[in-house]
Design a protein around this nucleic acid. Sequence first.
DNA 1: AACCAGTTGTTCAAACCCGAACCAACAGCC
DNA 2: GGCTGTTGGTTCGGGTTTGAACAACTGGTT
Lengths: 154, 154
Amino acid sequence: MDEPAWLDEHELSAWQAFLATGAIINRLVEQQLKDDSGLSHSQYEVLVRLSDAPDGELRMTELAGAAFTSKSGLTYQVAQLEKAGLVRRRACPTDVRGVIASLTDEGWAALRAAAPGHAALVREVFVSGLSREEFAGLASGLSALLGRLSVHAG
Amino acid sequence: MDEPAWLDEHELSAWQAFLATGAIINRLVEQQLKDDSGLSHSQYEVLVRLSDAPDGELRMTELAGAAFTSKSGLTYQVAQLEKAGLVRRRACPTDVRGVIASLTDEGWAALRAAAPGHAALVREVFVSGLSREEFAGLASGLSALLGRLSVHAG
DNA sequence: AACCAGTTGTTCAAACCCGAACCAACAGCC
DNA sequence: GGCTGTTGGTTCGGGTTTGAACAACTGGTT
């Protein structure tokens, strides 16, 4: 009801930290992937989602929901990945409109090759350096936030 | 030393939550600002940094450091803001190369107009819905992370 | 069967963002 | 004064992302 119109000191600094960490970490991840594997972060995410799905394939829409891009953005990235031979597209048997993206052998290989370096960086910039309690608090806060946002995103 | 090459379950889900929340929240913020004030998030950030600085002015480099864009990205955004009349550029008295960006009256006004709606959204998607403990944990985790990253960013 | 609201994925123009190259100007040094 | 290495900011080229418009299709209703 009588919520103040502004963020208080703690809220503001948490918000700033959220933005700053996001920006910095994204940049680092982007750089590492590009340098070591020639993949962009979005492309890597697409490969990961596919690899998590049964048979390594997923409808475009599901993929767009799981990854964090718009539909058109996904079309573009999948086209890039297809050009690179990491992903194949095929028609969906149950829906003529549908397109199914699936990992090729090269796609699996690229992912296997890229993952360890990526994991190491994530560990370095996101996990290590925090105490067990700090990390636990961060993790549970983020997960609560995500749960809350899912409502919003609906 | 013998760090596993992969992220364990907890690390992975925290990482995913970090990416997902960042993506979703950024999108919501972007949308709200654009709809209500015609500003992009980056532009809003630039205005905020300037308003935080003494006399509402800052050198380009300091601005680029404080906001989270590259130098060229900043040049672009400041040009946009200048075109919109919200920011003015003037030469730096102590360094001929230097450029000082400063808020115009319209800039102050635009910021004052945009801030409450922005604050309300941040509150809604970032603060509220979390218990006091969850938020505290999240905040301290983020701040630890940021402190850790500053080393990295050097 | 014919309609109709909703979904699917692509295309298009525009905006955005980055890194590299660049020029000009600083600072420190001999 | 003249070098030399560094910094400040813009420019440029290219890749990326977005939302809106679109055409094709679906599933349910009458």
